[in-house]
Amino acid sequence: GSVGMPAGAYVPPKSVWLPAMKAKGLEISGTFARRSGVIQMELSLTNKAMSVMTDFAIQFNRNSFGLAPAGPLQVLTPLSPNQTIEVSLPLSTSGPVMKMEPLNNLQVAVKNNIDVFYFSCQYPISLLFVEDGKMERQVFLATWKDIPNDNEAQFVIKDCHLNSDAASSKLQGSNIFTIAKRTVDNQDMLYQSIKLTNGIWVLTELRVQGGNPSYTLSVKCRASEVSQFVYQCYELVLKN
């Protein structure tokens, strides 16, 4: 972002999801973004075949968080050989739910006038971190105590050179909210909350020690299978 603007959520660079050789010349690369609460799949469609492509449509298989296209894939003009177009597809989270392995896996079908093609991709679950995920302090303390220790997962985030305030503000851009900060023995402890689109709350403690580039992240969540994906988001957000 420009000077004085919040950095916003991290958007990974596009990667190739469907190589042309597996889709009769159609190449699809893409990424996911959350902007002001709107989830989008951002796609580049390239025609590497010898003939024009038309009649595009997209469908998702059921998935862990109910991600579904909120409208049709808008490819309004035929795609000529060697042409690339950029398409943004808004997504909802009210589609059918089925737990996927890995949890953030999405199976996609794309059709055009030539055939139907299938691919899988993975989204950062920060896509699902909602804007009102700042938990009341009192509720945080009670919930932290209430979630059993067995549901706590710990991770080390290496090579991070931000101080705790910079980390906190960067994380907030991705809807990871700092509820409290305490300094004990030269360590800053950030207590943070996250709420997913399906109502699951995640509580974390981020430990930042002056002069030590390794952070310790503790994640407490009743649905403990989301913890490692939350950790992946911290890595992505803090290092980009």
Binding site: R137, R182, V184, E205, S218
Partner: peptide, 20 residues
């Protein structure tokens, strides 16, 4: 008073986590 209590509770939590 509630706010003071919460401030104190977070301090206790942080201390308990660094010196369990």
């Amino acid at each position: 008073e509630l706010e003071d209590g919460l401030d104190e509770a977070f301090s206790r939590l942080a201390k308990s986590r660094t010196n369990p």
